[in-house]
Design a binder for these strands. Structure first.
Lengths: 204, 204
DNA sequence: GCGCAATGTTTACTTTGTCAACATATTGCG
DNA sequence: CGCAATATGTTGACAAAGTAAACATTGCGC
């Protein structure tokens, strides 16, 4: 059997997997189409058969990461059936953990210019309307919003409005994630414990 | 008088100013040393007389932006002498406004790989220690922490600990800023009003 | 004034994204 | 089954951009 075959078989998805590895090890700035191609044992221009250009590969990787993120959040919620407060707290921690475990994902999901284009293609929040915050269906963050909504229903006396609550929860966990990943807050178990304690103190 | 002189006079700082403009118009990905040089009317390699490489110029620009950010926060605090809650609320809004007004700054201050190096060079939080969150002196975020500390002193009965409070405030405004800049939350006056209302509901 | 350090320029090399032309495998259709 | 169309890969080449080396010009301290 030859060491090298002409047709790879599943290059399209291996490019995503290898690309993710390279993002992990070399960072966003070190991410190179040629590196990804080499990791897949194909010529430097082979990726162009599957993605129009570098940006499209990154967009595909982003989509992949987005699904992983959504799954992680949904798993967290599942841990606490019939306990809206527990769900919200677990989801918040999962949100932070996902990004501290995979720092490059945060840049991928929230910082590449490519995101703007993706959002225009359907993965977008409805533009600002008077009726409040809504998300396109199947957006990973819809999981977050639904969890917040369930929590709010279970706490009729809450002084916060629905949108204020969404913004508080989402902003808090997103901000903590960002600050840790950026290095402005120290990573490590102590910080995660503090984050957990902080989330808990707001929710309970 | 010739249209072109050999010695620019103050290239080092004009590179920062022009670089900032290019970041604004072309984004981080479109930022090019050659473009900056051209904007300053010097040859493509002239910047190398003042900065070792592209990263160092970006680091210098970042420092410049950091100072502007710090100034903005300090101005916000000054608006409410002897009113810790008002200071905190005003600072939170200023934090968000600064980044929604200058979206590229957020990437600059929190996303470039260069930041890691800068933090190692002194602009760093003390690595995680048991005694809580502290910042290197003169760090822009020390303004935030001091404001939080004043607020906490004025609210002795607060159930939140000091570190939880810092993390809450910082995380919240940072998260909201990030989500708006990333495009996951709609920009615009409605959103800013909601953010303001949300901050206010937590602080007061 | 003169020499040296600071500041700019020219040239050239390397990496990387991308296109065009060509090669090979796969698939669908008579 | 045989072949044409299509999908997938390869090679070669070019342009943009970071950067180093060698050279040019200016200005400052003695």
């Amino acid at each position: 059997m030859p060491d090298k075959i002409y047709h790879h078989g599943d290059l399209k998805s291996e490019l995503i997997r290898e690309g993710l590895k390279i993002l992990d090890t070399d960072g966003y700035d070190g991410f190179t189409l040629r590196k990804v191609a080499k990791a897949c044992n194909v010529s430097q221009t082979a990726p162009y058969r599957h993605y129009k250009n570098k940006d499209e590969l990154i967009a595909a990787i982003t989509l992949y990461a987005m699904e992983a993120f959504d799954k992680r959040l949904k798993d967290a919620v599942t841990l606490h059936p019939n306990d809206p407060a527990g769900q919200l707290q677990e989801l918040g921690l999962a949100y932070i953990l996902f990004f501290t475990d995979n720092p490059e994902y945060l840049r991928l999901l929230f910082l590449s210019d490519i995101q703007k284009r993706m959002r225009e293609a359907g993965f977008a929040i409805d533009s600002c309307n008077k009726t409040g915050l809504h998300l396109h269906q199947d957006h990973p963050f819809s999981t977050l919003m639904e969890t917040v909504d369930r929590y709010k229903s279970a706490r009729p006396g809450l002084r916060l409005g629905r949108d204020e609550l969404v913004l508080s929860c989402w902003g808090l966990v997103h901000g903590i994630s960002s600050l840790i990943v950026a290095g402005d807050l120290p990573a490590g178990p102590d910080m995660l414990a503090l984050a957990d304690k902080t989330i808990r103190s707001w929710i309970v």
